[in-house]
Design a protein around this nucleic acid. Structure first.
Length: 622
DNA sequence: CTAGGGTTAG
């Protein structure tokens, strides 16, 4: 029998009310609006409506406008939350860096025997993935099977993803081979798993064997190559992707742009920029950041600035990329101006912004500005200075010659200094020829990180600078004995869209003969300008004559010779080097810029050198 | 609901 109180008309009005409330809820964009609706739900008794409560929860867990604590309160008031509500809470916690709570909630779900559905495992496994929680993943894997989701692609793919992305790639492979329900997502996760851990050959095998590929498959490979430092392979793959008729999307373009940035491949970078304009892709902050970074690292700050001005949503990352761009070009004043502009429009700097602005001060010798900015991190911006900020300060003080002050800063740091911090001081010792301190630090660094070739080289060059050849040779021998290899120096110059690469001392270039002849004629002119090569930064097991030959074959010199040979007088020569420029090459390039009346722009591992009229913008401190 | 993205000191 129907209770008298719920007459048909009343029920109808309640239902209308619920659906009306639902549509209002769906248009909410602020937490306060949600709270108003909840007040209304209390008054009308709609709090008991599971659909409405679920919608409220779903809104509260959204990372952007939501409020997780509020979600938890709402959730706690529900007597017996259903599967959807549990799923939503788990999703909320795993997407808001509170994955432990997500796992905890799942425990509760199990205890109360709340049924699972196909949404449960993807959310839950996302939490495992961000925690790299292998034990929990294995347990959940067992539940996936137990509750009959072992053949559900979403559950299986989520498992594959956790295993693959947390380094348990062999477990992923076993599962992959075992299940018949495989789709493109499964394949992509396998490719990603191998690619993330540098196993590009196996990644490529999976990639080649995929029944079908989509833009994500290609992008996964491209960013895998970028992560492995194989930038050229990344660009080649991007080309191939287009030949296969796959349209690049934002993510593919951003990944490829970072390869261009590393290579200094301005032409390809410009092509991508044009492609974005042509196809009307909206430049979101991530893509904008990649573009700005690419233009900055390829030496075109004007274009970087143009992109910056065009992007609507100027997030802090965009300002940071721009400031960092000015920093590496040695334009400290501009960097400071933009740092101020940023704050004028109400954008707060984050810790990355501070590394950028401190780098700017360091590379431009703005010591006082740098010091006061460092102070302001804590005092004004209420952020805790991180180790990278201390690293910047050691670099700044060290470059400026305040070695003792830099050392003092390291000693009073609240965190344990790492190799990068000591490396900054070591570099300062090289610049300012402080052999005693340099040797001490160098030794410690080599012991701490015996596989890092650069440390031995730095230590050896400090010994050499002091004229202590025996110890310099010994250091190099030490390095050899331990099987540590030094990355070979490589310089690239791009002409008419073709990148020409030069490895030190090689004659692999088709025009090698002409290039070496060109170098001889350059050397002759240099000799007239009273130039003596800086022998101390050479390979050490050679006699003096051989040493001089070796520096004359440094990759940057070959690239410049080639540039002079192949470009019209007056054209700017742009060279990108993978390592730091050597002292002798720096001196020589300054002279060349004067004698040949050329602007030479060289990007080394860390920054730009603009050579003009016999001077360099780095002020000879790099 | 599952797969790919940018800035980061020597």
């Amino acid at each position: 029998m129907t209770p008298i109180t719920s007459s048909p008309t009343k029920q109808l009005s309640l239902e209308l009310n619920a659906s009306k409330t639902l549509s209002v809820l769906e248009r909410c964009s602020k937490m306060v609006e949600i709270e108003q609706i909840q007040a209304h739900m209390f008054k009308t008794g709609l709090v008991a409506d599971t659909i409405l409560v679920s919608k409220v929860l779903a809104f509260c867990v959204s990372p952007k406008y939501g409020n997780l604590e509020h979600a938890q309160k709402v959730f706690d008031r529900v007597n017996t939350p259903n599967t959807f509500m549990y799923n939503t809470m788990i999703k909320g916690y795993s997407e808001n860096n509170k994955s432990e709570k997500a796992l905890h909630l799942y425990q509760q779900m199990l205890q109360l025997s709340v049924p699972h559905n196909s949404y449960t495992f993807p959310f839950l496994l996302k939490a495992c993935s961000s925690l790299s929680a292998m034990e929990e993943t294995k347990q959940i894997h067992a539940y996936v099977v137990k509750f009959g989701f072992g053949s559900e692609v979403y559950a299986v793919n989520s498992l594959l993803h956790v295993y693959a992305s947390s380094g348990s790639i062999e477990t992923a492979r076993l599962l992959f081979n075992q299940v018949s329900e495989r789709d493109i997502v499964s394949w992509n996760s396998m490719v990603d798993g191998y690619a993330k851990f540098g196993k590009m050959e196996i990644a490529n095998e999976f990639f080649k064997n995929m029944p079908t590929k989509n833009v994500i498959s290609w992008t996964t490979m491209i960013s895998g190559y970028v992560g492995a430092g194989k930038y050229k392979e990344a660009l080649n793959l991007f080309q191939e992707m287009q030949l296969e008729g796959v349209e690049p999307d934002k993510v593919a373009l951003a990944s490829t742009l970072s390869a261009c940035a590393y290579l200094g491949a301005l032409d390809q970078g410009r092509w991508i920029h044009a492609y974005i304009d042509k196809t009307g892709i909206v430049i979101d902050p991530v893509l904008g950041c990649a573009l700005i970074d690419m233009f900055a690292k390829c030496g075109d700050m004007e274009e970087a600035l143009r992109v910056f001005k065009k992007v609507k949503k100027k997030e802090v990352s965009l300002w940071t990329a721009l400031i960092y761009g000015f920093a590496i070009h040695g334009h400290g004043r501009e960097a400071l101006d933009w740092f101020e502009n940023m704050q004028k429009v109400g954008t707060k700097p984050n810790h990355v912004t501070f590394t950028a602005i401190l780098t700017a001060c360091s590379y431009s010798g703005l010591v006082d500005e740098g010091k006061s900015l460092f102070e302001s991190i804590k005092r004004v911006h209420k952020l805790r200075p991180r180790i990278e900020h201390y690293g910047c300060m050691v670099d700044l003080l060290g470059r400026a010659g305040a070695l003792e002050e830099a050392k003092g800063l390291i000693e009073e740091m609240p965190v344990k200094p790492n190799a990068v911090v000591w490396g900054a001081l070591l570099n300062a010792c090289r610049i300012h020829k402080n052999v005693e301190l340099g040797t001490k630090i160098g030794k410690v660094l080599v012991e701490e990180d015996p596989d890092h070739g650069g440390r031995y080289v730095q230590l050896a060059s400090i010994h050499a600078a002091a004229g202590d050849w025996d110890r310099a040779v010994e250091t190099r021998r030490h390095m050899k004995e331990r099987g540590v290899s030094k990355l070979p120096g490589c310089s690239a110059i791009s002409l008419n869209g073709v990148v020409h690469e030069f490895l030190a001392g090689t004659k692999s270039h088709p025009q090698a003969k002409q290039i070496y002849r060109m170098w001889d004629s350059i050397a002759e002119r240099l000799e007239k300008e009273v130039y003596k090569p800086a022998l101390q930064s050479l390979q050490l097991d050679l006699d003096d004559e051989a040493k001089e030959m070796a520096i004359n074959q440094h990759s940057e010199k070959l690239a410049i010779a080639f540039g002079l040979l192949r470009t019209k007088p007056g054209t700017t020569i742009r060279v990108v080097k993978n390592l730091r420029i050597c002292e002798d090459c720096h001196t020589v390039t300054k002279l060349i810029s004067k004698i040949y009346d050329r602007e030479i722009v060289m990007r080394d591992r860390t920054r730009f050198h603009h050579f003009k009229d016999g001077k360099c913008t780095c002020g000879d401190k790099w």
